[in-house]
Structures are given as C-alpha cells and as structure tokens.
Write a protein that binds this DNA or RNA. Structure first.
Lengths: 155, 155
DNA sequence: CTATGGCTTCAGTGTTGACCGAAGCTGGAG
DNA sequence: CTCCAGCTTCGGTCAACACTGAAGCCATAG
C-alpha cells in the first residue's frame, strides 16, 4: 500500500522545517515556508495555514509577520470582508542566502580590528593572523562569486 | 588617560565571543577562543582560563571539551603533577568555515528531493524550482571556490 | 597507602524563546 | 452604530540550554 503524494509532501515539509529550525528559524516558520513553496494554489490565508499546519492562529500570525518582514513571504490584502492572502516570494530567497554569506564575511571586521590591536607584536599575532588571512580571502572571494551568480541584479 | 592594550584586548574578546554567541557557540566558549587567539604565551591551563575569564571551572571544562572535540583547541597533557595545557589550533579554523558552507549547500538535498516529489506537475513546482536553482548553483560553485583557497590541502 | 592538585561530572538555578489560546483590535457589511 | 470575521497581541506554560559550584574522579608525589 503506497503513500499518497500529499502525505509525502507533508513529510518533506517537516524535514524542510527541521533543517531551518537548526539555523534558528522557528519550526512553525519553517513549515510555513515549506508549505507555501509547494501548495496549490500558491496563496493561502492565515486561517488556512493554521488548519493545514495544525498550529495556533497566534503562532501563524507571529511567524508570518516574521517572514513577511524578512521579505520571504508577501501579504496581499483584498477588499471586502476577505482574509489576506499570503504567498512565498521565492525570488527573495537569494537575500536569505546573502545574509548568511555576509554574516560569515563579517567576522573579517573582528579579526582585522584584532590585528590592529596587536600591531607591534608580530610574534603574538601569529595565531590571529592565520584566522584573519582566511576571512580576508573569504571577504574578497565570496562577494565576487555572488556577483557572478546567474540572475544577480545587484550585490 | 588612555586605555591599556590588555583592556582593549579584553573588550575585543568580548565582541568576538558575542559574535559567535549569535551563531550558537556558548558565550564562554567564544571567550576561550578569543582569549587563546591572542594570549601570550599561547598555552593556558583550564584553571588559568577560569581565572582570566571569570568563569566557573565547570563551564571552562565543558566548553574546552566542546572546542577540543570541534578540533579548534588542542589539549596537551604533561608528566608530573602538572595541569594540561590548552592552545588554539588556528589551522583548523578552516574546518569551522567549511562546515558553515556545507550546511548552506546541504539545503540543495532538500530542494532536490522536493523537486522529485513534484515531478509531473511543473506548474506547481515553479516556486520550488527557483529556490532549487539557487542552491544548485551554490552546490557547484562553493565547493569549487573552496578548492581554490590559497592553502587548501583537501576539500 | 594516603594526600593533593586539577580536571570532569552533575544536580540545581535562571534565562531565553517557541508555542498556545484567549482577549483585543480592525475594517467592511448591514 | 453595531456586528462580525479574521488577524494580531499578549500573558502563561513548557522545554532547552548556559552557567554555577560542589562532589567525584584520576594520576602523581611523598
């Protein structure tokens, strides 16, 4: 007896959310992202998400706010007594990745200022220099690579 | 009245630890890393770290264990009634960065398996495809870039 | 064998943050 | 103006985790 596609998609959404939970995104926020990436039709109201993901309306609201704020989800309001529709803005996913890369590169600021504090004592700076060299390389290469990305419109 | 170098280094260590605390490394672990990067001489016992960083012996022990396990710190035991010496292994810092990059690239596995679940329904897969394309690109470019790193000995 | 320095383990404490669900707010309909 | 659906806000609960300090556990010296 085989498992239906929707069931397998639910399991996929759960794995998807679990991955991002490890990176600090709340579990429910990750579920919303995964669900909005694959649901048909592509728009959902907060109430629908709440029912579909079995999460409280409060949690859905809080997480949607977070995701909209991060730019990953778009809120579309409509006239009349109608619920707002939420959909994923998959083009903004690159921003998420870029923030990750930026965070990595930003360590360079720390190592650099540390090196400045150690100027005049090269012996003592040896260990920090090794780390600084690594981040200096990242700080030049990663942004350059990012610009070469197929659909890069800006940095 | 100017501030001494050691005082400024303490402040630097604190900023250093704060940065990594945001990435999930315990505050005291980050302090140990920062301190071991700049202390002179380069080796310290657990007791010295405890005093210098004003942290309990238990916290120092737990965090040292974590850092040694991660490969960032090396423990050197000595004969006689002598405390073990801990020092930073700055060459292993690249491993830390690589783990970060690998974590980013690993999302590709998720998007790929998601795409497989959606095969036969290209319309519905549009949103996920955009995300998958991004990670597919990262999955080829990042490892390639890493290999071009100046002192890369392996992937 | 016994004492002791020194790291490790562990139970306890405080804090943080996700989540829930009810109360509150808002904007359009009647 | 009043009602109402539906989103948002907020107090309370719970679990996870960093940190402490004391007890435990070696290994070595005497």
């Amino acid at each position: 007896m085989s498992v239906g596609r929707e069931t397998r998609l639910s399991a996929w959404i759960e794995r998807f959310a679990a991955h991002f939970a490890e990176e600090g995104i709340p579990l429910i926020g990750g579920r919303i992202l995964g669900y909005l990436l694959v649901c048909q039709p592509s728009e959902r109201t907060a109430a629908e998400l709440s029912q579909e993901l079995e999460a409280s309306s409060g949690s859905i609201s809080t997480n949607l706010k977070f995701l909209v704020n991060a730019g990953l989800v778009t809120k579309r309001t409509r006239r009349g007594r109608q619920a707002a529709q939420f959909r994923i803005d998959e083009k903004r996913w690159a921003d998420l990745v870029q923030r990750k890369l930026d965070a990595l590169v930003s360590v360079r600021d720390l190592t650099e200022s540390g090196m400045r504090l150690m100027s005049g004592d090269p012996e003592r700076a040896v260990r920090l220099r090794a780390v600084d060299d690594l981040y200096a390389w990242l700080a030049t290469e990663l942004p350059a690579l990012w610009d070469r990305r197929p659909s890069s419109t800006s940095r």
